[in-house]
Amino acid sequence: MPIHEKSLIRPENITTHDELVIEGVDVSGHWSTFIESRVISDYNEAMEEEIAALPGGENIHRCWQCGSCTNSCTVHAIEPRFNPRYWIYLIRTGMESELLRDKDLIWKCVSCNKCTYACPRDVVPEGVMKATAHWLEMKGHVPESPSMTFDKIFTEQIVEHGKIEDTKVLMQFLKRTNQPLLQDWLKQIVWNIGMRTPVKWGLKSAWNFVFHPRTRGWKKAGAAIQDYIIEVEQHHKSALGVDKSTAANSNAQQHNLHAAE
């Protein structure tokens, strides 16, 4: 019998055995090719609610699978595996293992929001993509993204000082993402800026870099913002069932994929 849906067979599911005997029948060799079952039997029932608890994911339950998001998607046009409709479906049905196969694709959303306008059900797929990428990071399925690292450094400085010090943000970002401080492109930028900056501004910048003064009256405001950030983060973590110790470092294997059992 011919195989009709060859596209559904994943290479890793095709197996041959150099030596295999089943019930006395020798089925060794390439002419006894086996295709492993595609049956999914593990479900994470909580996945939809977890992603709905993160910013952008709130409307995921409204999806009716029309596919307008994928059809309008900028990324899908050049990367057919980028399929928001499919991922929303996997999330809603709890097919976590299937979603994780695409964990290195989901963050590629460029937030053009064409899906947001195409969606007839106000699902806001762009937000769902953002929430899903966030979820993957929080669950430890993917490492912290550089943009998340940058956001954290940025936020830390704001909370502490009420303003950022550009040089410090950049230096810390390079350090935390394990990049050398002295890079040719960076040296070029610094050199060019340095040559064009009036001496007075240069001195002021240097003074700010060394002392990093706080915005006047910032202490209370900074504390309030910090409290709010902690509160929201805690809310997200408890919605996802991840506490501080496991959040960033755990990996996919440690997570319970058998919630439905």
Binding site: L8, S37, R38, V39, I40, Y86, T93, M95, A260, E261
Partner: peptide
């Protein structure tokens, strides 16, 4: 058979 994702399903 989940006809939207084209795959067999076994659900408790």
């Amino acid at each position: 058979e989940d006809t939207l994702v084209k795959r067999p399903i076994t659900i408790p």
